[in-house]
Design a binder for these strands. Structure first.
Lengths: 211, 211
DNA sequence: GTCTATATTGAGATAGAC
DNA sequence: GTCTATCTCAATATAGAC
């Protein structure tokens, strides 16, 4: 409220908030897209939430679609970068897969609104938003698991078999956990739950392994 | 095309199709909702696809929302009924769970458009459509698996542990398989894939079970 | 860069004839 | 029950001042 205005040289008057208008618009858009859905979201509401008016939004992003594209581009970059960093690890194949999955789960946990918007676009109708490839994340994730699984099979830690099947099983479990934190009506399983479910997959449900 | 018109007593003129208007509207709505999404779907397009005009739709369903509700109500009934029938089975716990999952996967496989619409509503923004409880299916599915898993633990077929964890792992794998057939860009794994992934969970990924 | 004011289009819903 | 014609309103986007 009564913060003194610093007369920095190239900083224009931003009396209320330090964030740039562009950032405020993006945050507001994520919030509104998340609650109303992209199609039902009103540009007016986004602008008001950001404390500006509609023309400011159109000045920065060109269109409502442009706002969504900016959100998705940023999210895709952030997620893939975090995934690439998480891939390089040492230890047993089991521990490496577990750590990777915990990272991915944590990534969703700390970005629930963006993840929900991205999830809606990924699984939403193709004619709603223009084509935006979000499968890169899925591919990166799957190939990382497949590579670790191949290592595990080479050392004898894992039983032989299709590494793609292993990756699909792991990703299914993680996807299930992620959807439980994306959906309001379900209780999130938490990181501990992720580890328990993965242990189940590694060790098996039955009491005796078959031939 | 050239089917002779039967002059049934109380059947009004339906020259082109035998289906009642209500059914044609529902099918058309599923198709349009699936492609455009509920919010972006135009009532006019639904009516045209069904071969009628807008007032006919409003006569039968009252509103665009009413059409969606009719679709979801019918889908929920159909899915829960099929699930209840699939639960009662005999054999080992492993076989019962596998058969149940194959049934659920097949249910989605044979109703992809409806499943996509339902999935979009379930995971879509809460303020878009009025609240419609689709979690009943999830609950029914989970409890069925938990019950079978408890049986398996009682007979010693399954290792002791949380039956909820077993259910969540199984459902995650199935949900992953279902999403791969709901999404256009992924290759469906098929029923054979479902079985392979479940085998992986039952037998475990590692070569030796730990204490 | 951001505003006020407005253009323009499209969609949900309805009135009333048949 | 289904149609033609229309109402009403909200939403994207823009023009032009400052």
């Amino acid at each position: 409220m009564d913060t003194p205005v610093t007369n920095a040289s190239d900083v224009p008057a931003a009396p209320e908030q330090d964030e740039h208008v562009r950032t405020r618009l993006l945050n507001a858009a994520v919030h509104v897209f998340d609650r109303k859905g992209y199609a039902s979201a009103a540009v007016r509401e986004i602008a008001e939430l950001a404390g500006v008016t509609k023309p400011a939004l159109y000045y920065h992003f060109g269109s409502k679609e442009g706002v969504l594209m900016a959100i998705l581009t940023q999210a895709r970059l952030q997620f893939t970068q975090a995934l690439e960093q998480a891939v390089v690890r040492t230890g047993s194949a089991r521990d490496r897969i577990t750590a990777l999955c915990e990272d991915v789960y944590g990534l969703f946990e700390q970005n629930v609104p963006v993840a929900r918007v991205a999830h809606a676009v990924l699984f939403g109708p193709p004619e709603m938003a223009p084509p935006f490839d979000l499968t890169a994340f899925e591919l990166l994730f799957r190939q990382a698991i497949e590579r670790i699984a191949a290592d595990g099979q080479a050392t004898g830690e894992f039983r032989p078999g299709s590494t793609t099947d292993i990756a699909l099983a792991v990703m299914g479990i993680i996807e299930g956990c992620n959807e439980r934190q994306l959906h309001q009506a379900f209780d999130p399983v938490g990181v501990a739950g992720v580890r328990r479910l993965l242990d189940l997959l590694f060790d098996g449900v039955t009491s005796a392994q078959r031939a």
